[in-house]
Design a protein around this nucleic acid. Structure first.
Lengths: 214, 214
DNA sequence: AGCGGGGCGATGGTATGCCATATTCGCCTC
DNA sequence: GAGGCGAATATGGCATACCATCGCCCCGCT
């Protein structure tokens, strides 16, 4: 029926979810705007079924707020939402980095380094979207390196929101620099340092959020 | 988390999800057994669409393992899965209890007490399923009392697995007793004690899992 | 002008049916 | 007898269609 470029097989619903997710985290879909199944289906050239599936996925990721019997809307993040996200990450991020430092395989360390290099290059070049994506990749690979699938699963629930949060940051280079320190700690296998730096990293994020409100 | 005030409207898909979830956590559906959309639809007297939606939900909860293009199966938990779950809970549970102790409203404390009383009564009566359900309610209400919706959201991802884990416990009365201590700490607003007890509680769970393997 | 009721359109929920692919099993060949 | 090939079947992905409900708007009555 279409391309089929030797990919293992990707359901349309997965593609639809990815497209809409990108639009939301990049801000090209206004928070609060309606997501109407029929409209999305027409836009993307599919029927409502894969769109329904995709919207369920995005609701699970917290990017879409469902309104039973009426319509779904792009999630709006309040200051309180940002605080809650930080509070959760204060418990999970240090764990991610502590475990990653002690368990990472050489291959995982390499993948981590690669993500950081992409992030750093993009930050220097002033390419915000690429830097944010690479920064999110960095986080995700840390969680992979932590070697706990449940932890990864939980991270994926909030990963899109973390990425959105990254998008609110103005000083991308500062983020990349802190990631560099974290990378070094993970490389050295120093779990305690990694956990401490993760906490400090969150402090930076919190401060930035605070500042934005003023 | 259910309000269910006069049941304004419940989609079939939600009902299907609940039914199948109960069967899985109670063990009446064998881990590894196939979940065929058409069969479930026929069993429950609906079409495949609500079954599809329900299976997506259960996949998101980690109770069902999807096999694209073939079939979905009831998740099988390995010893490693149990370890991973404990590792995650060691980061989150103390946070749940610490926050609950400092933020709970009087109403939330009451709901918590009620859940514990149900658990304790069922444990004394030797009613395993009821005790497990009440124990899971206890945990969930603690997370509600923690006043962080993101935390609740993450908890719900693993809540069904936590409940399954509870089902593996033999000494339900011991669990209820530890919950009682936690309840007291939350009542007293002693966040540190609550967090410490939560860690100890997990130690009990880990020890029980260890013992089962022997 | 304000208010209440009825109807119509918008929209999500569900059913049915077709299609593509993976799996299975038997038969044929060596 | 073993291995592989092919057809039949099992099964999930998707499209189309119908229905129920919720809002909104307009009209008529007061």
């Amino acid at each position: 029926m279409s391309s089929e470029l030797s990919a293992p097989f990707e359901p349309e619903s997965v593609r639809v979810a990815r497209v809409v997710r990108e639009q939301i985290v990049d801000g090209s879909r206004e928070p609060g705007s309606r997501l109407v199944e029929r409209d999305l289906a027409a836009e993307l050239g599919v029927s409502r079924i894969p769109v329904r599936d995709a919207l369920r996925t995005l609701v699970a990721e917290g990017l879409v707020t469902p309104r039973p019997r009426t319509w779904a809307v792009v999630r709006e993040f309040s200051d309180a939402d940002v605080d809650h996200l930080h509070e959760v990450r204060e418990a999970t991020d240090p764990l991610h980095f502590r475990l990653a430092a002690t368990r990472r395989s050489p291959e995982q360390l390499e993948a981590l380094t690669e993500a950081w290099q992409r992030e750093d290059a993009a930050a220097r070049a002033g390419d915000g979207p690429t830097a944010r994506r690479a920064g999110a990749d960095f986080h995700e690979r840390v969680v992979e390196a932590a070697g706990n699938p449940v932890l990864l699963e939980l991270h994926l629930v909030i990963a899109s929101r973390v990425r959105w949060l990254l998008g609110q940051h103005l000083d991308l280079q500062a983020i990349a620099d802190e990631h560099r320190e974290l990378l070094d700690a993970v490389r050295d296998g120093d779990g305690e340092a990694a956990a401490r730096l993760a906490g400090a990293h969150l402090g930076t994020s919190r401060a930035a959020a605070q500042e934005r409100r003023a």
